[in-house]
Structures are given as structure tokens and as C-alpha cells.
Amino acid sequence: MARAITNRRKTINTAVAWAIGIAIFFPILWIFILSFKTEGNAIATPLKMFFSGWTLESYGLVMERSNYFRFFMNSVILAVGSTLLGLIIAVPAAWSMAFVPSKHTKNILMWMLSTKMLPPVGVLVPLVLLFNKLGLTDTHFGLVVVLTLINLPIIVWMLYTYFKEIPGEILEAARMDGAGLKEEVLYVLTPMAIPGMASTVLLNIILAWNEAFWTLNLTTTAAAPLTQFIASYSSPEGLFYAKLSAASIMAIAPILIMGWFSQKQLVRGLTFGAVK
């Protein structure tokens, strides 16, 4: 009897949850469908659109017309570059705070976090002027530096919470077994730190890829990533639904897939370890 009720409830839960899940996902599904239609069919009534023929034409048009590949590569360069640079700066910092904590460690961590609270618009004017003066506007280098700095606190924090979980005893054990500093770092600490570092990298690539305040304000063409590319569809071209859909799908697909793999880390990274 009890079991029957549970099964019925489970079925109802399933139905409701799936309905809501599909509703939330629907806009993405919709542009996915639109992206495989011809421009003419894409603006037809929904039913007619849905049952019209499927084509890859829009993807081809987006690729050849708007240098999609260059924008895509810029996104890759900015996201990967800023994450790697951030990692190089953050790993030593997080490492030393986790393994050689001092009475200032907590204050330093909190202060780093506080820099994240600075609203970007508060420093928009000086940054635009500085970038113009130094010739950094629309360069990969300039954007990589800015994206690194805005995400650095998150990288340090995430790494710190992961490194903290590596038990200190294991180092002592390694030392007892005759491991020197080199062996200790290479064979004991690094393997244990790699999963945490991988999660950090993943989350930061996602954040940098989708960053849309600085990339929109500090790039025009040469270093412009996909955020800028899509924004260029905002007027007249926006009415070409099939092309806009194809461009959008190509812009979000890599991150969507990465994001699905990093759900857990996302919670931890974005709440600075406050919710695990």
C-alpha cells in the first residue's frame, strides 16, 4: 500500500518536474529548432515553421558572412588566457594561505572577495580612458588582464577551499617515508590538487566566456569575442531569425556543455564556499 502511494507520487513528481524543466529550457530548444530552418520558414507561424524542412543553411551563412570563427577564437583566447593567467597568479597565493596560514590569512581572503563587490561601472570611465591612452583598447592582452583581475578573487577562493581539504598529515607521512620537497609537491600534493584545479578552470572559463560588461565596452572588432558578435545582431540583423539562432547556438553550445559538467563546482565557486 505504502509502496503504491510512493510510486504514484513519484509519477506525479516526474510529470510536473519534466513539464517545468522543459518550459525553462524551451527558449534554448526553440532557437535550436529555428537554427535549422530557412529564413523564410523561421518567421512563419510556429506550427508551419516546425513542420517545414530542415537545413544547415543558416550555419553556413553565419560562418561565411561574419567572420564567426574570428569571434569564436577571440572568445577562446580571452576565456582560456585569463583563466590560465589567473591560475598562475592564484595557485601560489591559495597554496600558501592553505598550507602556511598566518593570522592575516582570513583578512586577505576577505579583502580579495571585497574587490569583487566593486561595481564595474564605478571604474568604467578610468578604464576606458586608460585603455585608450595605453593602446590596449580592443587588444587581447588588455582584455585578458581585465578578465583575469575580475575573476582572480573567485579563483583564489575556490583553490583555497580545495587546498584546505588536503589533509596535512599526508605530507608528514610522505616525509616519514623519505620524500623530499620535490617529491612531496610532485607526487603527493599535485595529484590531490588537480581535481580542484580542474573545477576552478572550468568555472572560470564559463564566467569569462559569458562576461559581457567589459568585453562590450573595451572591444570593437580585433579582440571582440562572441558576446560582441551577438550584440551586433541587436538591430536590423536581429530580424533574421534563423541566422541569429544559428549564431546563438554556436555561441552558447561549448559553455552549455561545460556547464553541465560543472554543476557542483558552480555552487561552491559562486558562493565562495558558503554553500557546498
Partner: peptide, 19 residues
């Protein structure tokens, strides 16, 4: 359910606006 969070802001805004 989690998918919209990974959509870049310019894409979600434009898609909602137009489609």
C-alpha cells in the same frame, strides 16, 4: 533547469527580444 545560467547575456536578451 540549469541551462539558462550558461547562456551568455547578449544571447538570452536578443533571443527573448526577437523570438
Amino acid at each position: 533547469v540549469i541551462a539558462p545560467f550558461f547562456v551568455m547575456p547578449t544571447v538570452s536578451a536578443l533571443v527573448w527580444k526577437n523570438m
